[in-house]
């Protein structure tokens, strides 16, 4: 009798669980069957009327039904909760392709970027990065660099003279002298910076551009040492092996003086408009520091010697990004600058 009642309850409860369409219906069914006044509780009360043997058996049976139903209720309830969470989260859908609010990051000038890159390279090679003034004395810009007044080499550098007798530095080379005065020997420095030439501006000429000067002074520095640093520099810049050639070049502050050409990276040396069909691009004037320059910097040329070089940063930036108009670099045009 009890057995059949219990199995009837069980069957009804299971179908109620099955039929519950939401958490509330399920809760109502739980109260109906498992609540304090629910169907099973009612049967529990009736157990006392049974004989002790019967009671023990029926109690066991009741418990097993109760346990089963609790399990089923919990399972269904968990399922409803998960459903609810899923629905809530789904409602929180976001379009992540929308643009981020706030401002876009700005861009650094390409000349800044290349300067920083070369500063890091040379710092890793034990060079100090030094600065010099943009307005220079005639002595530092010319005389100390073995270019006395009325020297024809002054022709090569159209100079902006200032009313106070100073000038706008025509190259970063005066920093060689300033660095020697400040640090003495041994010395390893680079000096990136802005230089000026009194020229008409067009797509390939600027009166304002950037150079990077380099200098190393130590004992018995050779042309081979210089070549090593120049090759290291160029491979870091172009991130590949480059073929170079060294030929004589005249700069009064070095002796011997060189022009270092790299094989044209565009045509590989077969000749193209960029290298003016020669297969080579002139990139790096350099040389062993002239004893007069060492003396001007207060260094004894019998004890010390070294090399120096000058790299056209503006030219390098133009080569790297294939920029066809030098004026863009100083234009402040964001349409150009935002590309870097």
């Amino acid at each position: 009798m009890l057995d059949s009642t219990l199995s009837d309850i069980e069957a009804r409860a299971l179908s109620a669980i099955e039929a519950a369409s939401d958490a509330a219906a399920l809760e109502r069914a739980r109260v109906e069957f498992l609540g304090r006044k629910g169907a099973l509780a009612q049967i529990g009360k009736d157990l006392g009327k049974l004989s002790p043997e019967e009671r023990a058996r029926a109690g066991k049976l009741l418990n097993s039904v109760k346990q089963l139903l609790e399990e089923r209720f919990d399972k269904k309830q968990t399922w409803f909760e998960e459903q609810a969470l899923r629905a809530r989260l789904d409602a929180e859908w976001l379009d992540i392709t929308l643009p981020a609010p706030g401002v876009r990051p700005g861009a650094l000038h390409p000349l800044t970027q290349i300067q920083k890159e070369l500063e890091d390279l040379f710092t890793s090679l034990g060079f100090a990065v030094v600065d010099g003034p943009e307005v220079e004395t005639e002595w530092h810009n010319f005389d100390a660099l073995n270019i006395p007044p009325a020297h024809p080499a002054r022709d090569a550098q159209d100079t902006f003279w200032l009313e106070n007798g100073c000038l706008l530095r025509t190259h970063t080379s005066p920093v060689q002298v300033r660095a020697m005065e400040r640090f003495g020997a041994p010395l390893r420095i680079i000096a990136p910076g802005r230089v000026f030439r009194n020229e008409e501006v067009d797509a390939s000429h600027e009166h304002t551009f950037y150079q990077l000067e380099g200098m190393m002074i130590d004992r018995d520095v050779s042309i081979g040492h210089m070549l090593y640093f120049m090759k290291t520099l160029l491979e870091a810049i172009f991130r590949r092996e480059v073929t170079v050639r060294l030929r004589p070049g005249f700069f009064p502050f070095v002796e011997p003086g060189f022009e270092l050409d790299i094989q044209c990276l565009l045509c590989g040396g077969s000749g193209c408009p960029v290298c003016k069909q020669s297969g080579w691009v002139e990139l790096l004037p350099c040389g062993l520091v002239h004893p007069n320059v060492l003396r001007a910097g207060g260094i004894d040329p019998r004890e010390w010697n070294g090399f120096a070089f000058g790299l056209g940063l503006t030219r390098l930036v133009m080569m790297r990004y294939a920029i066809d108009d030098i004026r863009l670099l100083q234009s402040g045009d964001l349409r150009f600058l935002e590309q870097f």
Binding site: D218, S222, L227, Y228, L246, R247
Partner: peptide, 25 residues
């Protein structure tokens, strides 16, 4: 002498020098 023998006959060689920490700008 260098230009007549040709600078391309000079091998690039790293100098052997004491390590010094450069001045930091």
């Amino acid at each position: 002498i260098g230009r007549m023998v040709g600078y391309d006959t000079v091998p690039p060689v790293a100098p052997l020098m004491p390590v010094r920490r450069p001045w930091v700008n």
